[in-house]
Amino acid sequence: MVYKIRDKETGKVYEVTIDEETNEITVYDVKTGKPVKTVNMTIEELKEAGYEVEPV
């Protein structure tokens, strides 16, 4: 599923895909559409880390 996340401190917005089964999150560069990095976190962990998470 695709989400937009926003860093509450910097205001930067990222587009991510989240595999609900493995909790693998792939972060994409919004301008190029290319993957930047992959992390292993849940949506709740993202929120605790200071991100706003919205489904696209």
Rank of each mutant, 00 (worst) to 15 (best):
M1S: 10
M1I: 14
M1F: 12
M1T: 12
M1V: 13
M1Y: 11
V2I: 13
V2C: 12
V2E: 06
Y3M: 08
Y3H: 05
Y3E: 01
Y3D: 00
Y3K: 01
Y3N: 02
K4A: 06
I5T: 00
R6C: 10
R6Q: 08
R6P: 00
R6K: 12
R6I: 12
D7L: 02
D7W: 03
D7S: 08
D7H: 14
D7Q: 06
D7Y: 05
K8N: 05
K8Y: 05
K8H: 06
K8Q: 06
K8F: 05
K8G: 04
K8I: 10
E9M: 13
E9D: 08
E9Q: 13
E9N: 13
T10S: 09
T10I: 02
G11C: 07
G11W: 03
G11F: 02
G11R: 02
G11M: 03
G11Q: 04
K12A: 13
K12V: 13
K12D: 11
K12Q: 13
V13A: 06
V13D: 04
V13Q: 06
V13K: 03
V13M: 08
Y14V: 02
Y14A: 01
Y14D: 00
E15C: 15
E15Y: 15
E15M: 15
E15P: 05
V16M: 14
V16G: 07
V16H: 00
T17S: 10
T17M: 09
T17I: 11
T17R: 13
I18M: 07
I18A: 05
I18W: 15
I18R: 05
I18N: 01
D19H: 09
D19A: 04
D19Y: 05
E20P: 14
E20V: 13
E20M: 12
E20N: 10
E20Q: 10
E20L: 13
E21A: 13
E21M: 11
E21T: 12
E21K: 13
E21W: 07
T22G: 06
T22F: 06
T22E: 05
T22L: 11
T22Q: 08
T22P: 01
T22R: 14
T22A: 10
T22I: 07
N23Q: 10
N23D: 07
N23R: 09
E24Q: 13
E24I: 15
E24L: 14
E24Y: 10
I25S: 01
I25H: 01
I25C: 07
I25R: 00
T26Y: 06
T26E: 02
T26R: 07
V27P: 00
V27M: 15
V27Y: 14
V27N: 01
V27T: 03
V27Q: 04
Y28W: 14
Y28L: 10
Y28N: 04
Y28F: 09
D29L: 02
D29H: 03
D29I: 03
V30D: 13
V30L: 10
V30F: 11
V30G: 10
K31Q: 15
K31L: 15
K31D: 15
K31P: 09
K31G: 13
K31I: 15
K31W: 14
T32C: 07
T32V: 02
T32E: 07
T32L: 05
G33Q: 06
G33V: 01
G33K: 08
G33C: 11
K34P: 01
K34Y: 10
K34R: 09
K34V: 09
P35L: 11
P35K: 10
P35M: 08
P35A: 09
P35D: 03
P35F: 13
V36W: 10
V36M: 10
V36Q: 05
K37D: 05
K37T: 11
K37N: 07
K37A: 15
K37V: 13
K37H: 13
K37W: 15
T38I: 11
T38N: 06
T38P: 03
V39S: 05
V39E: 04
V39Y: 14
V39Q: 04
V39G: 05
V39A: 06
V39F: 15
N40F: 15
N40D: 04
N40I: 14
N40L: 12
M41S: 06
M41D: 00
M41P: 01
M41G: 13
M41R: 05
M41E: 01
T42H: 03
T42N: 07
T42C: 02
T42L: 02
T42Q: 03
T42W: 00
T42Y: 01
I43Q: 02
I43L: 13
I43R: 04
I43E: 02
I43C: 07
E44G: 11
E44K: 10
E44I: 07
E44P: 06
E44F: 08
E45G: 08
E45N: 08
E45S: 07
E45R: 06
E45M: 09
E45Q: 13
L46Q: 00
L46M: 06
L46W: 04
L46I: 08
L46D: 00
L46P: 00
K47Y: 11
K47Q: 11
K47V: 12
K47D: 05
E48P: 02
E48R: 10
E48W: 09
E48T: 10
E48I: 10
E48C: 10
E48Q: 14
A49L: 14
A49Q: 11
G50Y: 05
G50I: 05
G50P: 01
G50Q: 03
G50A: 05
G50D: 03
G50N: 06
G50L: 04
G50T: 03
Y51D: 01
Y51Q: 01
Y51E: 01
Y51P: 00
E52M: 06
E52K: 03
E52Y: 07
E52D: 09
E52R: 02
V53M: 08
V53F: 10
V53L: 10
V53Y: 04
V53N: 02
V53W: 08
E54L: 14
E54N: 08
E54C: 14
P55M: 12
P55D: 08
P55W: 10
P55C: 12
P55R: 11
P55L: 13
V56C: 10
V56M: 12
V56S: 09
V56I: 12
V56K: 05
V56D: 07
